[in-house]
Design a protein around this nucleic acid. Structure first.
Lengths: 334, 334
DNA sequence: CTGAAAGCGCTAACAG
DNA sequence: CTGTTAGCGCTTTCAG
C-alpha cells in the first residue's frame, strides 16, 4: 500500500505537503499540487481512512440500528425504502453506513459500546425494540441519534402523522357509507395508539359510537399469513361492513382467509390496510390504504442526523410527515 | 474517552499489559487481569477500534455492494433476506457490515478505491451491475470478493441452480397437463439464460417443440405493475394454457391485468412465478413458484467470504443451491 | 509556501 | 509475568 510518505519521496517534499493537497488545506503552490496529484495517481495511492479517522477522532460512519426480524426489518418495504433514501443522503454527505444488529456481534446488544468502539458519528434507529434497555441507553447518551417512531424525547424522531392518517382512512370508509367499522389494531406502541385514536376521532366526529366489540388487537404483519387477523374478524359479535387492518400485508393475507370463508373483499366487505407497500396496488381488489412517505422519512432522518453531527447539539424534535390516501376497490360504496 | 493509558495508570502497569488482557494475548497474571478488567469496567473503557485497525492493518469490516435500485435492491425480499442471513453469520464472526453504493458517495462508483480506503477485509456483491467496469475491477483485484449470481470466474460466486429450478417448474406444468407454455423471460443475464435453458430442456424431454412465438423477453420485476408482461402475453399469436413469468412480482402484478382482460388465473390459465417471495403464498390463487433459498445463499456467501479472508487464497468456485418447488393453485390440472 | 515534529490509541516484538 | 519501544498512516501546529 502506498502512503503519503511514498508520494512525498517521489515529489521531493514532506508528507505534510502531500496531506495538505489531499485535504485542500494550507497553501500549496499550484505546481506542487499538480505534481503530488499526478504522482498519487500514477502510484495508485488510496488514502487510509483508518489513519485519518484516528487522528481526526471521528469515523465519518453512521450506524443504522436494524434488527434482524423474522417478519420485519429489511423484509418490510417501508424499512427497506426508508433505508435506501437515508443512505442516499448520507453517502452524498460523505458518511459510510454500517449496520448494527441486536445481537450476534461480539457486542451482544451493547449498542452504545459498539457505537463508541467504532467511533460512529451518529446512529439512526430504524427498526429496533424501543423497550430494550440498550436502546434506551443509546438515547440517553451524548451521541447523535435519530429514531424512527421513537418514543424518546431526548433525541429527534421522525414518523408519519399516524393519528391524522388513521383518521383520514376511517373517514374514507365513512364517506363510502360505512358506519360499522371493525378496527384491528397493531401491537401496543405509541404509533398504534395514535392510529387507534385517529379511528376513534373520525367515528366521534361523525356521531358513530365506538364499540369495544368492533376493536381487536391482532398485532402487525406476522408470518401467520393473516390467519389470526381473519379469525379475530370473523369472531366479531357485532355486524360490520368494513375492517381496518393494522398493515397492508395483514390485509392482503386476510384476503385469502376471507375468501375461504366465502367473503368477497370489496363486495361483501370493505377492507383497508396501512403503509402503502407496492404489492397493495397489484392485488385484486386493489387495497385502499394510507401510504407512508418512505422517501421523506429516510431523507428527513438523514438530515436530522447530519444536523446533530455537524450542527452541534440540535434540539430534540418530533418530525411528523403526511401520509397519503391510496384509494382502492377493496372499499365499496354502500 | 478513556484509553488504555488511563487504565494502565490506574493499575500501576504499562499500556502493553492492558492491551494484552484485552487481546487475551501474552501471559498476564490472573490478579492483574482482574484488576485491569475491573478498572476498565469502572472507568467505562471502550476500546478504540480505529486505532486497533490501524496497527493491525485490517478493518474487520466487509462491504456489501448493494445498488439503490428503483425496483430491486433491498426492496426485493430475496435480497433483503439474503442480506439478513449474511449479516448474521458475519457479525457472529466479528465483522461489521458496511453498505457500498454505486454512486453518490465521494467515491463516485470507484468501488475498489472505496474498499481500499476503508481497508475492507472483503466484499459481498449482492446486487450490482456486473457489466460495470468498476465492478469488474473489483473482481480483478486482490481483495476477497464473493458475488451473488456473478458472471466472473476469478472469485467465488453463489446462486440458485437456475437451470434445474426452471426445468423443474416447467415439468410441474407438464405434469399438470400443460404443453402449450409461454415463457416470459427476464433481462439478458447468465441466470436468465440458465432458466430459459431449463425451460427448453423440460420441453425437449417431453417431446414438446420449443416455439419462438411462445417466448418473449419482458425483463424482471419492474414498476409497471406487470402491464408489460401481461401485454406480451396477450399478444401471443399461438394458443397457450400456461405462462411462466420471470419472477413472482411480475406474475402477481399480472393477475390483475389478466383479470381486466377477463382471464381468470388458475382457471382459464395457469401461471408460475420465480423466487418464492412470501406474498406469493398470500395471494389468491396461491402462486406456484420456485423458492430461492435466501437463507443458504446469505449464509453461504458469508462462509465463502470468511474463507477468502481468513483462509488465504481460496480457489474460485461456483456454489449452486437447490431451489424448492412451491406448488400453488395458480396452476390448474388440465 | 513548505517541513519538522508531535501525536491519535493501540499492538507487537523484544528485553528484562 | 511485565515493561520499553517502535511504529500503523495521517493530520496539525509551529517554525522557517
Amino acid at each position: 500500500m502506498v502512503t503519503i510518505y511514498d508520494i512525498a519521496k517521489a515529489c521531493n517534499c514532506s508528507s505534510a505537503t502531500v496531506s495538505k493537497v489531499f485535504n485542500h488545506t494550507g497553501n500549496i503552490s499550484e505546481n506542487k499540487r499538480r505534481e503530488v496529484l499526478a504522482a498519487a495517481q500514477k502510484m495508485g495511492y488510496v488514502p487510509n481512512v483508518t489513519a485519518r479517522n484516528l487522528v481526526k477522532r471521528r469515523s465519518n460512519m453512521v450506524g443504522v440500528l436494524l434488527f434482524v426480524d423474522e417478519s420485519l426489518g429489511l423484509r418490510h418495504e417501508l424499512f427497506a425504502e426508508t433505508l435506501n433514501n437515508f443512505r442516499t443522503v448520507m453517502e452524498k454527505s460523505g458518511y459510510e453506513i454500517v449496520l448494527i444488529s441486536e445481537k450476534g456481534s461480539q457486542w451482544q446488544g451493547r449498542f452504545l459500546d459498539h457505537c463508541r468502539a467504532l467511533r460512529l458519528d451518529g446512529v439512526f434507529c430504524l427498526c429496533c425494540d424501543y423497550d430494550s434497555a440498550a436502546v434506551h441507553e443509546l438515547f440517553e447518551s451524548d451521541i447523535p441519534v435519530v429514531g424512527f417512531e421513537s418514543p424518546f424525547l431526548q433525541k429527534p424522531s421522525i414518523e408519519s402523522k399516524n393519528f391524522e392518517a388513521s383518521k383520514r382512512l376511517t373517514e374514507y370508509l365513512i364517506e363510502n357509507g360505512h358506519r360499522e367499522i371493525v378496527y384491528l389494531a397493531g401491537s401496543d406502541r405509541a404509533i398504534t395508539t395514535d392510529r387507534i385514536n385517529g379511528y376513534r376521532a373520525a367515528l366521534a366526529e361523525h356521531g358513530i359510537p365506538f364499540r369495544e366489540e368492533r376493536f381487536c388487537r391482532v398485532g402487525y404483519y406476522s408470518n401467520d399469513h393473516g390467519k389470526n387477523a381473519a379469525r379475530a374478524l370473523l369472531a366479531c359479535p357485532l355486524p360490520y361492513t368494513a375492517v381496518m387492518f393494522p398493515d397492508d400485508f395483514t390485509a392482503i393475507a386476510a384476503y385469502r382467509e376471507l375468501a375461504k370463508a366465502g367473503i368477497r373483499v370489496g363486495e361483501d366487505i370493505s377492507v383497508t390496510g396501512f403503509d402503502g407497500v407496492s404489492i397493495g396496488g397489484m392485488v385484486l381488489p386493489r387495497l385502499a390504504t394510507m401510504q407512508q412517505d418512505a422517501v421523506r422519512i429516510g431523507k428527513g432522518a438523514a438530515q436530522l442526523l447530519i444536523g446533530g453531527i455537524e450542527g452541534g447539539s440540535v434540539p430534540a424534535c418530533r418530525v411528523q410527515l403526511d401520509a397519503k390516501l391510496l384509494a382502492g376497490d377493496s372499499v365499496k360504496k354502500i
